[in-house]
Nucleic acid binder design. Structure first.
Length: 670
RNA sequence: GCCCUCGUAGCUCAGUGGAUAGAGCAACGGUUUCCUAAACCGUAGGUCGUUGGUUCGAUUCCAAUCGAGGGUACCA
């Protein structure tokens, strides 16, 4: 009943299939060297009236062959063999070739997808070994809003690559060995509240960290303030001078003066802000008698904390014992958040894991002549970089660059990866430029090191997202708030149901958790990762627009049909139903379903999960339209009913699969 | 100073060198005896910061420029 397919045509990746056919058609017509770049010019059509796909290479080819593009297009069409799955191609405009896929071909693919666990999506032909480095919180500090993006984007990339059939190692490179631990140890030795520590060790350690950090910051601020004030003074003087410059009458000179004035103004502004910030830090301690007393007693706290870190690193028994005691509860606290977020790792190899390897790494670079001393520090000078990468401080301590080099060495030895992806915010791009260049110097040219950078989460004011008092927003509170708001919405909607409430209190809670967490993750993933984005609970939980909630709702509506109709999806799939694409709504949905593989491919091509969310949003839109226009349970005939049920089932499974690649769950009812 | 990122509708943001640049919100208008209206359909809204260049074709690539943000030697 379905057309039979040879190996080449059993593919829902229309774009790559069309590329193959186009390449064959181009052979002999275009120069060998240009074949692949010309074949790239197969793209989905933007407007349905131009068909499903279009071939755009006739214009370019016409130019190079010095022939009218429409004539070239006609010749291409004559040579192009696509009649097994496309309607006859049409030539339009200057030489566009428009293609429309045959309905019976789509129907055959849908049937095949329905019988497949992977919905017909083929694993990649060439498997690669990937390492994805993501999340990487500091163990000493509670996770905050800044950790969402790395965790969520990294996890999604991990899941998607894995689904494509690659070998992937997800590694959480936690900060468990740095100066923060020295602060905690110092705090524990001097300020601990034993009862609080017994009751909730993580909360107490976090309090100690914040306290020590505040005191250290206080003394730093005290030292900095005169310098900053002087800077402000200079800036103010420079501004006054710039204002006094008389118009030169010369266009270039005036422009220069105007620029100088602007620069002086912004210098004054930033200096004022810097002074204000430092004064605020000082006032917080000076205005508090208890804190002032502590500060007076611990005036060496900065240096002393560093000493505690150094002692830890050099194997001091007491500090090592404390470190071993602190780690498990801290890791468990992280785990709790990851469980809630559904973020997982294969490895959690933190900074401490590489401690023993640092000296050898430094030695390696030194002996190869790749690193040399400068101002007492050991530096790697890289071509084209005016700032060196420091791998050993003048006091002999190692830096995070050192750890990262050791990490590369370890990963190369253990996994021999084809690519290592670092999901880290864009502010560290210089560090990664250095790191990757240094890795190449060490001989790791074959590996594709990539900084998967992302932008900042902003508040409504366009500044990094903070609480009203200016503190960073804790991740746990963020999750709680999202779930709480979701709970309110779930309850409201359930109460409003004309047939009366459908959900038990327990079900409501579970739905709220899934919807709330999903909303938060999706809001992050649906942004182009490179840009900053404005955080908004209302937007992320909206029922309209590109949100997880909208997708989950589409899914729940499908499941509702099966529930109402008493239809067993598995039995339906086994039934050999013939799908009919009688209306545009049905055909659009069908084509959308079959584009999943393309969307996945697009999202891993440049590691941008938002390509996948865009696809899912389109798919859910097609479904909503279908849902409005095409009655399923009350279809005119039982054949049409089954056909539509098949489309519904495939929609639910595709949405579920797509969301799972984003690390987001679905609910049967909401 | 140098380096990086960004600038698209009133707002928040998508956009793969291709035809008439999209979505959501906000505004305006319509749809419910019908499987979840938490929905759907429609109208209006644009100098893709500016100026050049490359190209058959540029929001997309290159250069300059204006504006915003970030980074820039011993924190991570």
């Amino acid at each position: 009943m379905f057309p039979t397919f040879d190996d080449c045509t059993v593919s829902m990746n229309f774009r790559s299939l069309l590329r193959e056919r186009l390449t064959a058609a181009l052979a002999g017509l275009a120069p060998e060297a240009e074949l692949s770049s010309l074949a790239e010019l197969v793209v989905p059509s933007q407007d349905p009236k131009f068909g499903d796909y279009q071939i755009n290479c006739a214009m370019a080819l016409g130019k190079s062959l010095k022939r009218p593009p429409r004539e070239v297009a006609q010749e291409l069409v004559n040579r192009l063999k696509v009649d097994d799955f496309c309607n006859p191609p049409e030539i339009a405009g200057p030489g566009f070739i428009n293609l429309k896929l045959k309905d019976d071909y789509l129907v055959g693919l849908l049937a095949a997808a329905s019988g497949d666990e992977r919905l017909g999506i083929a694993p990649v032909a060439r498997k690669k070994q990937y390492i994805v480095d993501y999340s990487a919180p500091n163990v000493a500090k509670p996770m905050h809003v800044g950790h969402i993006r790395s965790s969520v984007i990294g996890d999604s990339i991990y899941r998607t690559l894995k689904f494509q059939g690659h070998n992937v190692v997800g590694d959480n490179h936690i900060g468990d060995w740095g100066t923060q631990f020295g602060m905690i140890i110092y705090g524990f030795k001097h300020f601990r509240d034993d009862a609080a520590y017994r009751a909730d060790p993580v909360a107490e350690l976090s309090r100690l960290y914040r306290l020590v950090n505040q005191l250290v910051g206080y003394f730093e601020a005290k030292e900095e303030l005169p310098k900053l004030r002087q800077k402000l003074e200079y800036a103010t003087a420079a501004l006054a001078a710039a204002k006094n410059v008389a118009p030169a009458g010369d266009k270039n000179a005036d422009k220069k003066n105007a620029q100088a004035l602007k620069k002086a103004e912004s210098d004054v502004k930033s200096a004022t802000e810097a002074v204000g910030e430092v004064e605020k830090k000082l006032a917080a301690i000076d205005g508090d008698a208890a804190l002032s007393a502590l500060a007076a007693k611990h005036s060496r706290i900065g240096a002393a904390s560093l000493e505690e870190t150094a002692k830890l690193h050099s194997g001091d028994e007491e500090n090592l014992k404390l470190w071993r005691e602190f780690m498990p509860p801290c890791l468990e606290a992280l785990e709790e958040t990851y469980r809630r977020l559904h973020v997982t790792f294969d490895e959690t190899l933190g900074e401490s894991f590489y401690h023993d390897r640092l000296a050898a790494v430094v030695e390696f670079y030194e002996q190869k002549g790749l690193a040399r001393e400068s101002d007492g520090a050991l530096c790697i000078f890289l071509p084209g970089q005016d700032v060196p990468m420091l791998i050993r401080k003048k006091d002999g301590a190692f830096l995070y660059a050192t750890t990262d080099l050791a990490t590369i060495q370890y990963r190369m030895e253990r996994w021999k990866p084809d690519a290592v992806l670092y999901v880290v915010d864009h502010r560290q791009s210089l560090h990664f430029e250095h790191l990757f260049a240094a890795a190449k110097l060490a001989g790791y040219e074959g590996c594709d090191f990539r900084h998967i950078s992302f932008g900042t989460v902003l508040g409504k004011d366009g500044r990094p997202y903070k609480t009203r008092s200016g503190d960073t927003v804790g991740l746990k509170g963020l999750l709680d708030e999202a779930v709480e708001r979701a709970a309110t919405i779930v309850a409201e909607n359930d109460e409003r149901n004309p047939e009366g409430p459908q959900l038990s209190a327990d079900e409501r809670r579970r739905v709220a958790e899934t919807v709330g967490i999903g909303a938060l993750k999706y809001a992050d993933l649906s942004q182009n990762r490179t840009s900053d984005y404005e955080f908004s609970y209302d937007k992320m939980l909206a029922m309209n627009g590109n949100t997880a909630t909208y997708m989950q709702y589409a899914y729940a509506r499908v499941r509702s049909i099966f529930r109402r109709g008493g239809v067993d999806a598995a039995a339906l799939r086994a039934k050999n139903v013939s799908i009919v694409l009688g209306t545009p709504a049905e055909r659009n949905l069908a084509l959308g379903l079959l584009r999943c593989e393309e969307a996945i491919e697009l999202s891993t091509a440049d590691f941008r999960p938002n390509q996948l969310t865009t696809y899912l949003f389109e798919l859910a839109n097609y479904y909503s339209t279908f849902f409005e226009q095409c009655p399923v349970l009350k279809a005119e005939t039982s054949e049409l009913r089954d056909s539509r049920l098949m489309l519904c089932d495939l929609t639910a499974r595709t949405i579920k699969l797509g969301l799972s690649l984003l690390g987001i769950d679905v609910v049967e009812q909401m």
